[in-house]
Structures are given as structure tokens and as C-alpha cells.
């Protein structure tokens, strides 16, 4: 998704002189082409993420559209108060680009994992939050929203991801649907949707047919789409590369409660502190029951006991 991001950014920067890229000293083999093509609009501001957000606020006030880039926790959690008092409070078009969804920086450990960024940032009124599920959707989302007047947080996957069924579709405030089975619904966000697709395929092989609702636009939330997809469904599952608190699982819980929907909810995501061992993202996901096969088994078990 990093490549999709930079290709989109090159495209919009060539059309609009307000677009800038500011990195916190990250993006090796990602940012170079931008740096060469737009040297005046590229900046490595050093390893100083709080200042990145403050700078971007000052630049945006003067009419620029700065994209600030780093690894997700560094660009969301470290400067959280700057996001709040800067682009959010002033309603300025700063683009916060976090690389890494969940445990994608596997071997690097908890410091590099993105596990609570959605939860933290979803509290901020007026902050658009977009977590694309694959490269094509990321490209579409970035290009469609770049001139949005307020701030946007893009939660991007570190990996190249393709979900052909999505067709790269993205609309702000709406979700995208894959399949239309009614035995279960998975509401999923981000690249971990690939595991939801695998799980749905496995379940389909077992004669259990469901629907995946892909929520890339976490804020504004696709409330109508979620309410509609849950009509007549007994059980909904949420899937996210995030702690189960604050992210898409919480979002769906809020929508169920506020709309009084008669549906049970099971949230799949990280449920405990990941401070014991490290490993590849795939191994950590499998260990936490978030791989396609494990998800299929967990969903089948829940449906059997219903």
C-alpha cells in the first residue's frame, strides 16, 4: 500500500501545487520519486513527529495540503495532542499518513504496532479516518479525498494487498460489500480483510454463506450501510488489526446499541497486551485467532452455539 500511496500522491501533486510530503525520516524506497520530482514540496523534518504535526498546521493555515508520513504509532500516538489542537481544532487539511496496520511490523515489536490508533483518533470530531483494505482502494481513497477541507488520517498497510472483489471501490461515509450470504456478516476494516475473505470462502465450502462489509471510511462511519446489512441477521462479527476496544468492533457495537438492532456481536481483534514474543505478522495473527482458517473455525463455533 506504500507504493499505491506514493503513486497517488505523485499524481495529485502534479495536479496541485499545494500538496506537500513531509516525512519523519521514514520511507526509504518509498519517498524518493516524490523527492526528485517535487524537491520544493518534499521535506524530511527529522525524527520529530510532534513538530511534524505542528509544522503541518502552520503550512496548512497558509494554504498547503501537507501529507505527514511515518509509522502509524509514531505519527498518531506520539503527537496525538498536536493532532487534536492543530489540524482538528483549526479544521485544516493536514493528511496524517500512518504506515502499518496492526502487527505488520512484526519483528519490530509493540513500539511499532498500530493497535489503538483508530480508537484514539475516532474520538476527534471532524477528523476523517480512512483505513483501506487494499492498494486499489487506498489509491482511490487518497485521490478522491485529497482536497477535502478538513484533516484526514490514512491508516495504510505496509504490505501490497489485493482484494479483487473490492474492485478498488471507495466512497467516503460508505462501506463496500463482498458477497450477500445471510448466515453471518463480518464487518472488517483494513488489509486484514484478506483473512475475512479466506474465512468466508472456507465457511462457504462448509455450506455457510455470509457477507463481508468492508469499512474503509471509519469516520464518517457508514452507519446506514451497517444498519442495512444487519437487518435480519442474528450474529455479526467484526474483524480488525487493532485492539478490540475503540476500533470497528466498538463502532459496530455503538451502531447496534443506538439503533436498537436485535443482533449479537463478536469482536475479532487483539484482546491482550502483545509484550511476550515477537514474530511475523502472519504468525502473530494466527496466534491471536485472526488468520482465515482460525476465523472460519471461530465463526462456525459461535454460529453452532447460537
Amino acid at each position: 500500500m506504500r507504493n499505491a500511496f506514493i503513486q497517488s500522491l505523485l499524481k495529485i501533486a502534479s495536479q496541485d501545487g499545494r500538496v506537500m510530503l513531509i516525512t519523519g525520516d521514514l520511507g526509504y524506497l518509498v519517498v524518493e520519486e516524490f523527492m526528485e520530482k517535487f524537491p520544493d514540496r518534499f521535506l524530511n523534518a527529522g525524527v520529530a513527529e510532534q513538530n511534524l504535526l505542528g509544522l503541518a498546521t502552520g503550512l496548512a493555515e497558509a494554504g498547503f495540503i501537507p501529507f505527514v508520513y511515518s509509522i502509524t504509532p509514531f505519527i498518531t500516538l506520539r503527537p496525538f495532542e498536536f493532532i487534536r489542537n492543530g489540524p482538528v481544532y483549526h479544521n485544516l487539511p493536514v493528511r496524517i499518513v500512518g504506515i502499518g496496520q496492526g502487527v505488520e511490523y512484526g519483528m519490530n515489536g509493540l513500539s511499532h504496532y498500530a493497535l489503538e490508533d483508530i480508537g484514539v483518533l475516532r474520538t476527534q470530531p471532524g477528523l476523517t479516518i480512512i483505513a483501506p483494505a487494499d492498494d486499489a482502494q487506498a489509491k482511490n481513497a487518497i485521490e478522491q479525498t485529497y482536497h477535502h477541507p478538513g484533516p484526514i488520517y490514512f491508516r495504510l498497510s505496509k504490505e501490497k494487498t489485493t482484494i479483487p472483489e473490492l474492485l478498488g471501490n471507495f466512497t467516503l461515509g460508505e462501506a463496500q460489500q463482498i458477497g450477500n450470504g445471510r448466515d453471518f456478516v463480518i464487518v472488517s476494516t483494513g488489509a486484514i480483510t484478506t483473512e475475512a475473505v479466506k474465512a468466508a470462502q472456507t465457511l462457504s465450502d462448509w455450506g455457510i454463506n455470509g457477507t463481508i462489509l468492508v469499512v474503509a471510511s471509519l469516520a464518517p462511519a457508514p452507519e446506514k450501510n451497517i444498519v442495512n446489512v444487519l437487518a435480519g441477521v442474528n450474529h455479526v462479527f467484526t474483524l480488525e488489526a487493532h485492539y478490540i476496544t475503540g476500533g470497528v468492533g466498538s463502532l459496530v457495537a455503538e451502531i447496534i446499541a443506538e439503533n436498537g438492532l436485535p443482533v449479537r456481536l463478536t469482536r475479532f481483534g487483539f484482546t491482550h497486551l502483545l509484550n511476550k514474543t515477537v514474530g511475523s505478522a502472519a504468525s502473530i495473527c494466527a496466534e491471536n485467532g485472526l488468520s482465515g482458517d482460525k476465523l472460519a473455525a471461530r465463526i462456525q463455533k459461535v454460529l453452532q452455539n447460537a
Binding site: Q50, N51, L53, G54, L55, A56, T57, G58, L59, A60, E61, A62, G63, F64, E81, F82, N85, G86, Y89, H90
Partner: peptide
């Protein structure tokens, strides 16, 4: 030009404004 109150942040906004 910029709302403030949390100390230090204004310096960072000013730096961006000067660069702009």
C-alpha cells in the same frame, strides 16, 4: 492566527507558518 493554550505547540505552528 492559531489557537493556543498547550505550551510549546505555538512554536511548532510558527515554524510551519514561517516555512510556508
Amino acid at each position: 492566527d492559531f489557537g493556543t493554550g498547550s505550551l510549546g505547540m505555538g512554536m511548532s505552528y510558527a515554524t510551519g507558518a514561517a516555512l510556508a
